[in-house]
Design a protein around this nucleic acid. Structure first.
Lengths: 344, 344
DNA sequence: TTTTTTAGTTTAAACGATTAAACTATTTTA
DNA sequence: TAAAATAGTTTAATCGTTTAAACTAAAAAA
């Protein structure tokens, strides 16, 4: 690898000290430096195609202009999209992003945090898996600038940018109730993660407020292993028997994906036999037979705000900002009012 | 931010020089160092929760154990999946990854390369947009370890890991021909990117080898702007008129997505009215009415090989490795043999 | 006993930047 | 004319590591 030009090289060519070169190229002490020397320095820097060594800079300034991003899985479209918006927003402020996937695994998360901190990232954007409360507290104690995104822990006072999950699910159930559906089921993830339990809470609250029946068997949490099969089994149970569910909510994009496939293979008619509400937006939904009602997360805002909140924390350490954004219900044919459902 | 412990801190506590601490913690000169001192140093390092400052380390060793990854768009499922495999493989070798999206824009690509190089990444994994040949040559000249992935330039001698796109598309067309389809169209991207033109070449070669008609109008390149509408328009044209196309190939995942949606909204029956072959695998395809035939890219191998080829280049500079992996045709109902097509 | 070898450790320079403080020469003020 | 202010530049320390070379004391060889 051909050696890159350093401040020293420029200094040598121009015949000045490296300090002066540094001052000129960083526009410091402008009023003190002679125009001509400054001009020559800039010219030589350009000629030699000088690019500052960020590593050296970082060592001195202890700022790397790098952010660490830990999500559950960068291959998950939700996180991939989020990552993209984070990347763009970071780039706007001349920051780069190192990303890593925790696989919802606390140990892996801890390892990633350590790795990122050793690389001296200026701050962390974290979509924390369940069970990392202590890690987050630890980061706070160390004073590491941090913002949680998508998920957060209500009992720990951190900055976060997340969806108002309660509202989102409440709105969806409310929508179903208003459309005339009475027996409403939900398939969710079997996890303690607050953003998921909030969705459950929203579901239950909206059922109650609309005087709809709540049944234990209509609320089905699914473990992460063998998710598609479990979802299929649940839908089978939901749609058969004497009192089948009339509408179902899928509490995450992965569940929605599995659910829609199951609905296809079970040949359940949507919405006539079963109304459907999905979580998250993916262009995938466009391939389903019936246009799908779904809860749209403001992914762009989530990403942008996560970055700006974090950069803010860098500027004003210790400041805590907590943001809950509302989801938007996109009503489509999969939750058509019962009254105008076409006969089979 | 509470100050982290440094080598100096450990040295002070133990009462030795930083050099010795460094030697111990890096297991250098093992035979020279007294067991007891080594033990004490390790103990104190643990007690003080010492984490080496990678920045300082990097400055000295001029290796950052960081790789730069530039793809077209990290939000595109293909690249998101690829990125995930790259992340995992890099992590296996204790490397981290900085990612960035070029949006198929040469200027942005150049900017990203510069940024990544300033951060002193040890090497670059690049899915280059069209028109960055000069940038790649420049990187080669500078001796920057580099591997192209997914795409490459046949006229530039670089390491790369890519699909055998000619073979992939050839196989698909061959499959259609063997299944009895005669009038075969393809919708592709309007670009000079070699991996895409190779798909076209495979398409044409297979048509010829199977004595099938080649028609200019059956091969439709689509520009990136307003892609879905253009794809829909093309499909409309393909399926109407006196001599409609019997089968269509979608030359990328984005085109496939748009194409499938259009097929739905045009109510074209698959495969009875139109057989379909898609490029890339996504679980999206599971929602389509007919199980889809598609060309599966070995994304995991692509990602893993990209990393290992790059790490190899780091070890043995100047070594060029070029890998073309075969795609796999997954034959399903959307290309059922004409002879057993159900009557409408 | 003197010299050589070996073991164990320290010294000090270096990586490439930043920046407070010092320095020199010139100009202004008193 | 001496003192003070200003302009323009350099010196040198520093960030946290690594590592060749130097050093010292004890052990082994002559």
């Amino acid at each position: 690898m051909q050696k890159k030009t350093s401040l020293k090289d420029i200094a040598q060519v121009v015949g000045v000290s490296t300090a002066l070169v540094s001052y000129v190229l960083n526009n410091k002490k402008e009023n003190r430096i002679s125009k001509e020397v400054a001009k020559r320095i800039r010219q030589v820097a350009k000629d030699l195609n000088y690019q500052p060594n960020q590593i050296a800079k970082s060592l001195k300034t202890s700022r790397t202009r790098t952010l660490g991003l830990i999500v559950a899985d960068i291959a998950n479209p939700f996180f991939a999209t989020l990552a993209r918006y984070i990347e763009d927003e970071a780039d706007k402020h001349n920051y780069t992003v190192i990303f890593a996937s925790s696989d919802e695994n606390p140990d892996k998360c801890q390892k990633l945090i350590t790795t990122l901190l050793n690389r001296q990232v200026d701050g962390l954007i974290l979509a924390p898996p369940a069970g990392v409360e202590s890690q987050v507290i630890d980061l706070q104690k160390k004073g590491i600038p941090l913002v949680l995104v998508d998920r957060y822990f209500p009992d720990i006072r951190t900055s976060y940018v997340a969806l108002n999950n309660f509202q989102a699910m409440y709105t969806a159930v409310d929508h179903l109730a208003k459309a005339g559906y009475r027996r409403v089921g939900m398939i969710t993830l079997d996890t303690d993660l607050y953003h998921i339990t909030e969705r459950t809470r929203g579901y239950l609250a909206a059922l109650q407020d609309n005087n709809l029946t709540t049944r234990r068997s209509w609320l089905k949490p699914i473990g992460p292993s063998n998710l598609p099969a479990e979802v299929a089994r649940t839908l089978q149970a939901f749609t058969t028997g004497p009192q089948p569910v009339e509408a179902v909510l899928f509490a995450s994009n992965l569940i929605a994906m599995a659910g829609l496939k199951a609905i296809k293979s079970l040949s359940v008619a949507v919405p006539n036999e079963l109304a459907v509400v999905c979580f998250d937006e993916t262009d995938t939904y466009g391939l389903f037979d019936t246009p799908l009602t779904y809860i749209r997360q403001p992914v762009q805002e989530l990403g942008q705000l996560a970055v700006s909140v974090l950069l803010n924390t860098l500027a004003v350490p210790g400041q805590i900002t907590q943001v809950n954004l509302d989801g938007q219900l996109i009503g489509q044919a999969s939750t058509q009012p019962v009254s105008i459902l076409l006969p089979d």
